[in-house]
Amino acid sequence: MATSAPAWRSPANWLGPEYRNPARRREIRAAFLFLLPNVVGFLIFMVGPLLASLGFSLLDWNLLSAPDMVWLGNYLELFRDAEFWRSLRATFYYLVGSVPLGLVLSLALALALNQRIRGIRFFRTVYFIPVVSSMVAVALMWRWMYNPTSGILNYMLNETFAFLRLPLRAPDWLQSPVWAMPAIILMSVWKGMGYNMVLFLAGLQGIPRHLYEAAEIDGASNQRQFWTITLPLLTPTTFFVLIMSIIGSFQVFEQAYIMTQGGPVRSTVTTVYYIYENGFEWHKMGYASAVAWVLFALILGVTLIQWRTQERWVFYE
């Protein structure tokens, strides 16, 4: 006796009644066909490696010899690994240093470049140039600037200290465990400021003009307008910038790789740098995968907290 196919096998049941219309059906098929390359690419190059790395994280494996299944051994080991905690501290230091500073500076820049003055496009372009510049070139340029003997930064600082008769000397930026991370933060903020500035500019230009006109009629000062109109109505943009900046900070790598190679005294070994070291320099692929998944869980957790708390401070018009 012939039996009918299960209900889930029929596309009409999960694509809705539109699938019964032949013309619509053709379109849906065509849509799937066009989506296929992207979906296949996503499955092969994103989902595949993700699942593979999850599997690797349960192994003790250098990719060459036979793998040993250690189950959660790598995860347990990393909680006892002082270097992992050191890398996490370095990452949080970078995050706490770079995100607020980058946010405030890019907002200030956006406010300054939201004026109707001559050559405004030129200035906007200039501030955006670091964003499109290669990180390698930028990092090398800053390395020269940070040179304690021939760098322009220390020359200017020391001249200023001398002028003010202050008994201070500019630091040995990239060779000092105290100053290396601030040096990286400063460079990163400079490089990323233009991108956030553009986002804030778009947010500023989306604030309805009539709100400012009403505030002016009521006699509100510019400062008052900023705190009661601009800042609250910019919160959707600020929320987006904050989430992206925090995720980006958790993933910081190139700056430390190029400028300090994790030193001095491993003060700039961030978590992603530690993943790189374990995976690609020491060939401990299982352990590196475990660190990567812990980092993913951290990013997910922090983003979820931000998402949940947005209703308290993000205002959508």
Partner: peptide, 10 residues
């Protein structure tokens, strides 16, 4: 002897 940073790229 200067530090590695003092030696710099020059």
């Amino acid at each position: 002897s200067p530090t590695i940073a003092q030696q710099g790229d020059v």
